[in-house]
Design a protein around this nucleic acid. Structure first.
Lengths: 335, 335
DNA sequence: ATGAAAGCGCTAACAA
DNA sequence: TTGTTAGCGCTTTCAT
């Protein structure tokens, strides 16, 4: 029963044609629902194909059509729980449309980002989705240019360069500040995430503008990696520099978790002494104690919409531009 | 400057040949390091290729070679933080070897598992890595059979069906029980994860055997989804059924987190009244409070080794079989 | 050291 | 409704 693999000869369209007593062309037409074939022949062909276990060769198809039915997806760090949610949404939408996802993990380095965009080109993906691009505009646009279709997540770009799914970070940042001020906090510090992050800049704009609207200003701003340890050292630094902070707003939830650790280490009570607001609402946020107040972004939806937008941009020249997702404030125990 | 995309004519090997004044064959040889070309011509060819921005067409290559330089990776649930770590390891190893990863998310359904294994076949991946296969042996082997190379993670299989990277769940389960008994716990309940999980069965064997070795038996066993909510309802059920449990061992960390929530809701103190041990050591484990005692599995290493093993099985008929990873007990605050 | 021819499997364009 | 021809871009085989 157990044959060595690969012994089975590869079944081609010609084999099916022979078995069904028709030409390869007819088989191709039937199997691709191109019509123009009698019900009877169609039936014979489908039967033969099943019988022989025929599988169309995607290389041959690709060679003719120059389409791979594959989408490249670049994420900066798959171990950040934000991205698996986005990937999940993208996967669902892609597989529903008969596309596969080629996943690349950038490891938060803009050099590697460039390389990976290029690598996906080599694999002739039909289009790419890039999460949190960090490259400067010129380099990014140049790297994206050869791709047939591009969607950026959380990064702006002209419509002819890419479609975009963005988060309204400024609105989110405003919600966070308003909430803290309402709760009586006045000495607010900012853990700002990576300097090169475009989303980070938008958040900062929102934080500052809303603080100003309340007649306040930030008690301190520290940049850091978008990770737990990044947030931890940033918070440690902020606490050391400024003694009377009563709230911290963070670039993302991982940073906020780091800040929690730092406060705990310093014997500072949350939320009694310092309130904490994260960003993203990753699944852990409500599992922590205290549970984390944060700004929820619809992550799966982002992934789904990104794929939908990309497929539409692949299909037509009539480029749609994109979608803005507005974060929602989720008040929990840290504030 | 900004041309509409796709206007740039596709550069083929013939274009490079023309530019370098040689035949396509020579270009192919040079660009593939097949030797047999004067240093001088080689140089001219490489220059021309760069100049024209030539990119070999993977479809044409695949059509001839029947190799895609792509690996399929099936995970049951990418939103379980266990798998991003595995994926990360796999990605690193794959991209180092010039391979890309095609990711599929099974959504914990064995029906879909079968479909996705088939779908990857259609995309002519060079091999697949399957995490936590749930299909029964016969169906699984049948689905895997047409693939050129297969590695299973956490599932046994004969060497001619697949290579395997497995966790020594029994050993891990023993460590957990020994530890709890040492800490004076005697009434141990088991949150057993999904009934269909093979890893779950091994854990159960280990839990029971080690309990027996201490002259004890399980105070109750409940099966559930490998998720937070699964663990929560399982724990709720166990607590209702058995009043004097003093410890819970869990299928995985997500289940353990669910159990923590259930205990908290029931006003039961951890670890004072009930000790808790998870499995996996996902990154959250040490961010919870109390931090979670668990069995650490080297997740990235699993991914890396899986890819390495797969590539070796793709390259040679001399099939290596696999690796067993032994979990390490990480004692934290829940026990 | 280099080249010509042929073919991998499929489908668009053109017959019949 | 069905078939024939040709060619997508590359590399293996067989010359030169």
């Amino acid at each position: 029963m157990r044959r060595p693999k690969n012994t089975e000869p590869k079944i081609t369209i010609a084999d099916v044609a022979r078995a069904a007593g028709v030409s390869p062309m007819t088989v191709s037409r039937v199997l691709n629902d191109r019509g123009g074939a009698s019900a009877e022949t169609s039936e014979r062909i489908v039967a033969a194909a099943n019988e022989l276990n025929y599988r169309p060769n995607p290389f041959a198809r690709g060679l003719r059509s120059d389409r791979s039915k594959t989408i490249g997806l670049l994420v900066p760090d798959i171990t950040n729980p934000f991205f698996p949610e986005v990937i999940r949404g993208a996967e669902d939408a892609a597989s529903a449309a008969g596309y596969n996802l080629l996943l690349s993990n950038v490891v938060e380095s803009s050099k590697r980002e460039e390389e990976l965009i290029e690598a996906l080109l080599l694999h002739r993906v039909d289009g790419i989705i890039v999460c949190s691009a960090r490259l400067p505009d010129a380099a990014l646009h140049k790297a994206l240019e050869p791709h047939r279709a591009v969607v950026l997540i959380n990064r702006e770009a002209p419509n002819d360069v890419a479609g975009t799914i963005t988060t309204d970070y400024e609105a989110g940042a405003s919600l966070a500040i308003d909430h803290l001020v309402q709760r009586g906090r006045r000495k607010i510090g900012i853990i700002a995430g990576p300097r090169s992050s475009f989303g980070g800049k938008s958040r900062l704009v929102g934080f500052r503008a809303t603080l100003a609207a309340h007649g306040l200003k930030a008690q301190g701003i520290v940049y850091c990696d978008p990770t737990v340890t990044g947030g931890q050292s940033a918070a440690t630094q902020l606490l050391a520099e400024t003694s009377d902070i009563d709230a911290l707003v963070c670039y993302n939830d991982l940073n906020a978790i780091g800040a929690m650790k730092a406060c705990r280490a310093a014997g500072i009570a949350i939320p009694e002494q310092i309130a904490l607001v994260g960003f993203d609402d990753i699944p852990i946020a409500e599992l922590l104690s205290p549970t984390l107040t944060t700004l929820r972004v619809q992550k799966r939806e982002m992934g789904e919409e990104a794929v939908r937008l990309l497929l539409s941009r692949i299909a037509t020249k009539n480029h749609q531009h994109g979608i803005v997702i507005v974060p929602e404030l989720i008040v929990r125990e840290t504030s």
